[in-house]
Design a protein around this nucleic acid. Sequence first.
DNA 1: GGCGAATCGTCAACC
DNA 2: ACGATTCGCC
Length: 671
Amino acid sequence: MAGFRLFDLNPEQEKAVRTTEGPLLILAGAGSGKTRVITARTAFMLANGIPPESILAVTFTNKAANEMRERLGTLVEHEKAKKVTMSTFHALCVRILRQDIEALGYKKNFSIYDEGDQLGLIKKIITRVAARDEKLDPHAAKNAISKAKNAGSREPENDKTLLGAVFGRYNAELKTLNAVDFDDLLLLTVKLLNEHPAVRERWHRRFKYVMVDEFQDTNRLQLDLVSLIAKSPEIGYIPNVAVVGDDDQSIYGWRGADVTNILEFEAHFPNPTVVKLEQNYRSTNFILGTANSLIKNNPRRRPKNLWSSKDGGDKVRIVAMTDDRQEASFIAEEIHARKTAETLKWEDFAVLFRMNAQSRLVEENFRRLKVPYRIIGGKSFFDRREVKDVLAYASSLLNVEDDVALLRIINTPARGISDTTVEKATQWSIIKQTSVFQALRDEEFLASLMTRTKVAIEKFVEFIDGFETKLHEPLANEPAILRNLIQESGYLADLQRTCKTPEEWLDREKSVNDIMANFELYEGRSDKGLRGFLDEMMLRQDQEDEEEETQGVTLITLHASKGLEYPHVYLMGCEEGMLPHDRSKLEGTVDEERRLLYVGITRAQKTLALTWCRQRIKYGTPMPGIASSFLKELDPALVEHRDVSEILNAPVSEAKATASFSAMFERLGKL
DNA sequence: GGCGAATCGTCAACC
DNA sequence: ACGATTCGCC
C-alpha cells in the first residue's frame, strides 16, 4: 500500500500489521509493542480503505480503550479515528442491548446493577425465602451466582437448595425490575445474538473486522460473543478476527477467564496466522530479567524467549519498611525528591498495589507534599454514599420501576416513610406483581396506612412524578432538572446536616458537584442523555474531567495496570499474605498471583522499587509482616535488598541535596 | 417514626 | 479504622 509508512516495526510486528484478513493470533510478550501493533494495524486498515465503522476493537479496561483511542488519534485523522469502535466488552454489550433487548422481553431503558445493588437485592431475597434455621452468606451467594452466569447458565442447577431458590428468585426479580447485573450484560447479549439471527446478522455485517486485546483473559461468554459477531453461518466464510494475548499475563481467572481460549485458539478459529512478538521495547534488562526469573517458576507456560536490548540502568530495589505508614511516606517523599533531582514529570511515576485500600496512605502523603496524583480504576468515587444517592435519584427518575434505586432514596432525606412502611410496600408489590413505586400509587395499599404516612407517600410520589414529567418534555435540560431534583428533595441540606465537620461537608458537596459537572460535560459530547450518562457511570468510565486527568503520579491496582507502562514504578505491599494473597493459597491460585507480580514488574521502563513492611495495620490493629516468598525467586544478580533506614541515612548526593533545598525553599515561599 | 450511640464485620482484583 | 447496622431513647 503506497503512502503508508509502517513506522519502525520489526518484521514480526509488521507481519501482524499487514495481516488484516482471516484469523490472526498475536502472542505478545510484555512490552513487545502490542498496543503499537494494534493501533498501527488499525491505521493500516483505514489507509487501505476499510471503513472505520466496520472495525471493532475490544479491551478489558476503560483505561486501555482510552489509551488505544488516543494513540490511534495520533496516527489517523481525528474524524476517522472517532468512528472506530473501541470499547470494553461490557460497554459493547450495553450498546447492543440498548438497541435490541426488547427481543428478550426487557424494556430498552433497563437499569444496570452494580455489585452493591446486586448484594442489596440478594440480601432481600434471602431474608424472604430462607427458613428460620437456614443461613446463606449474601456475598457467597453473589459470587456463586456470578460464577454460574459467567459459565453461561442463567438457571440454578438445583433449585431445591436455598442457593438455587435464591438464584431463581434473583433472576426473576431482576427481570421484573427491568434491571440487569454486570454478568447479565454478557449473558443476555450472547443469548440475544444466539436466539435472534436477524440481530446477530446486523452486528455481524456492521463489524467486519474484530480485534480483541488481552485475549488470555476472556471467559467463555466473551469468546462466544466474539464468535457470534465475527463468524457467519455462511459456509466457507473466513472470519476477520485478530486476538492479542500473553498467557503469562492471565490474571482474571477469578472472573472466569479461560486460558484455553488463547491456548486453543485454532480450535475456535481454524488456520490462523500466528505471530510471536518476543522483543521487549519497554524495560531495562535488570527489570526484564527480574520478571523472567520470577515467571519461570510457573508451570504450564507457553515457551517464549522475551529479550530486551536495553542495557544499563539500575538494579531493581527491594526495600524493607518498618510499617505501612513509613512505606507510604517513603514512596511519596522519594517521588517528590526525584521529580526535581532527576528533572522528571509527575506522569513518569506510578505506584502499584494489590488492593485499593492500600492507596489511601499514599494519597494522604501526596496531599501533604502537594504532589498531584490520579487514581485509576478503584471504585472509591462511586462507592461514596452521596454519589450513589445522586445516581439513585437519577435512576429512579429514568425508571421508576427500578426498586433498588427507589428504595435507596425513598426516605433519604427522611420524609416520613419508615422502614416498616417500606417493607409493607415491598410486600404489596410482590403480591401484586408490580414495582414498589406502583404500590405507592395503589389506593388500596394507601388505604391501609395511617393518614400521616399516606400523606408523606403521596407527596413523594407527586414529587418524583413531577420531575419525571419534566425530564420527558422535549428539549428538556437534563442536567438542570437533576440539579433541581437534588436541591428540592432537600438532599443537599440533609447531607450538610449529617456531616460532622465543615471539611467533610465540603468534600461531599464537591463529589455531588463533580457528578453534575460530569453530566454536563457528557451532555456536551453525547446525545444519549441521562441514560447514557448513567451507563457510563456504571461501567466506571473515568470519572473526572478529561483535561486535568492526564496530570500527576498514577496510583493503580496491579490488575488495572495491565497494558500500561511507566518510566518509574513503585510496587508496594510485597508481603506474604498480600501478594500472594492469603486467599489464593486456599484456592490454589498462587500461580495467578505470581503472574500478577510479573505484570507489575513488567510495567516499569527504567527503575523499579518493590517494597514490603515488617508491620501493617489490618482491621485497625498492627500485624507482623514478612517479605513475599516471590521476592526470593528473583535473580539475586539483578536486585538489591535494602532496609529503608539505609536509604534514609545515606549521604545525600549533590543533585538530590540541591533538589531538596530548592523544594524546601519552594515550600517556605508558600507559607 | 426519627436520631444519635454502640456494635459489628470487613480488605482481593474489574466491568 | 471505617462504614453499615442495630439499639435504645425521645
